[in-house]
Design a protein around this nucleic acid. Structure first.
Lengths: 345, 345
DNA sequence: TTGAAAGCGTTACCAA
DNA sequence: TTGGTAACGCTTTCAA
């Protein structure tokens, strides 16, 4: 049986004064005498009083909660982002409530509904992989709940956005491969139609074009961004008569899968085939050879997302009301490692 | 400016009936006529009514929130645990609020205070690495807030516990090394005094003893469980005249560090030196050679922790009140990989 | 400097 | 079957 918590009324009764006086005393209100304040805080301590945030929330109309929704908390990209969000939110006095969408649109909708009921003060989300209808996010905006989309987002939506410039990241990666002398570069993409993968493909194409290399449709493969898919695709690919001299994967997982298969086949990396992945997962610097990858600064992404929320909340309270949505696009960084660094000739 | 949410009163006014009737109608209370229910839900839909969970929480005296505190959300062990907790909590209608302790005791205390104010219905936590004074956790128990400690816990505390049997995990690992023919086994420990590392050390000692191998003090090293520390220790170790033939690390990071250094030195793994880590981090199966490790089932740990909370909550509501604390100790699993598997002779 | 009272949005009990 | 009302714990305005 839960023990009853002390309330303002308890303190007031104890001292035979009014709750409102107690309330003010505890908030150090100027109108209350020092003696009263002393007495009140003493009794508060004795009774182990802790303000009931729920009651305050009801009065203030604000829960002090930020709803955070990601596909899965245990993907390292999102885990880091959550870390960043929590740290900034914490400092500003907000708590974060975590939801997982499991990359499922219905779960997304259900979670948003729960957030509405919880009266979260804002929502930070990375939408489900295959979400194509964004009306449930539009609803958030229509209700004037601050919405910050990170990493994955949709341009049709008028929300704040924090993301990494996938196009640039891919462009950098492919340009680097070309500089290393690669000419026949395979691209292992993710699910086509998903914004981030489309952008990476676009960067790939543009880098080829800018270097006068013809884009070949049959060098691009769609994958589910798993290690296994990377292995299978690579295996199939090496049955062809003409082999590529580089692989640019839109995710580190298939890059690793490719690397494993090629190593097993005795293909020299990076000399026969150079490999670049995307996301800079921890393992890229542990495997042999280490894998060149694109760092997305996920923790920073989370921090910025939280910061935008804080800014918007404080702005809302001032004149600066219908402020335009902010789009913060970070430039990703190419981390060059062994898998793509050919010895200078 | 946030749009005002529709309330029960709004619906009541619209239909010219009483709020209490509306409340009951929406909850499908048997006393309310079908016609009224129909009308009410229609207007509710029109006004886009969503129950205010804060108001309900105030009345019911229950927030429907579980406070979850971990050192860092982005350590994969904790990220998985959070995933497990979220999924079970979700199903039971609870939301989880995340806190990070940064392995700092003061932050822990501050976070607990915030949870008190938020009136969380329960707390699931893995305490900070160097916490030795557990009185702040005792406070939680004293206030009759369900407390479930996972992974890291202290025996002096009368809380529910979900953890992995570190002793057994270490015992299995070391026994395995001995079976592979290793006789001089180094142990890279974590911070001594931390329960989990003490247990792993104990398992190491016992396995040696049970196999008539003398325990040598100078084969045990304390580390901060980083890759770098693993590298440094191994480097120093190899300056000694007598080399060990195996390394059992209490964490995968130093195991990897050791592996990197030894590979660079041309030491054959596992034939010259066998290596076993702990935690089964993803990278253990990606590196070359793959690293044998102890799987801790972190996601399962989280699921069980959440389940214990749910059970306790529902038990509390029934007769079964001061139920004894539950201790669920999972047996970890040794995942044998290349780094310790010597060819059968 | 302190007190009284209304109100935040629900629920639950009792009366009609 | 429906309505009225107190209560949850706090804040805030106005009055004393």
């Amino acid at each position: 049986m839960k023990k009853k918590n002390a309330t303002l009324t308890d303190i007031a009764n104890e001292l035979d004064i009014d709750v409102s006086t107690v309330s003010k005393a505890l908030k150090n209100h100027p109108n209350i005498s020092e003696t009263t304040k002393k007495k009140v805080s003493k009794v508060a301590r004795q009774l182990n009083y802790r303000p009931n945030a729920i009651a305050t929330a009801l009065v203030k109309g604000s829960s002090n909660l930020i709803g955070v929704m990601v596909p899965h908390t245990d993907e390292s990209f999102f885990a880091s982002a959550i870390r960043g969000i929590e740290e900034i939110a914490q400092q500003a006095g907000y708590n974060i409530v975590i939801f997982q969408s499991h990359d499922d649109q219905n779960t997304e909708i259900k979670n948003l509904e729960t957030m509405y009921r919880a009266r979260v003060d804002g929502i930070i989300a990375s939408h489900a992989m295959y979400t194509s209808d964004f009306s449930h996010y539009q609803d958030v905006i229509d209700q004037d709940i601050p919405l910050i989309l990170f990493d994955r987002f949709d341009n049709s939506l008028d929300s704040d956005v924090v993301a990494v410039d996938d196009y640039k990241g891919a462009y950098k990666a492919v340009t680097h491969l070309i500089e290393q002398g690669c000419k026949k570069i395979v691209h292992i993409s993710g699910n086509m139609g998903v914004h981030i993968y489309d952008e990476r493909l676009r960067g790939y194409k543009q880098a080829l074009k800018d270097n006068d290399i013809n884009f070949e449709e049959d060098l691009v493969f769609e994958s589910d961004t798993s290690i296994e898919d990377g292995q299978q695709l690579t295996t199939k690919l090496w049955d062809r008569s003409v082999k590529p001299d580089a692989i640019f994967a839109a995710s580190d997982n298939p890059a690793l899968g490719a690397l494993q298969v090629l190593k097993a086949k005795g293909v020299k990396i990076p000399d026969d085939v150079a490999i670049v992945g995307f996301s800079n997962e921890k393992f890229t610097s542990y495997v042999t050879p280490t894998i060149t990858s694109v760092e997305q600064h996920s923790r920073r992404l989370g921090e910025i997302a939280a910061q935008i929320f804080i800014d918007r909340i404080s702005k809302d309270r001032q004149e600066n009301d219908n402020k335009l949505p902010q789009k913060v696009i970070l430039t990703p960084e190419l981390i060059v490692r062994e898998s793509s660094q050919r010895k200078r000739k």
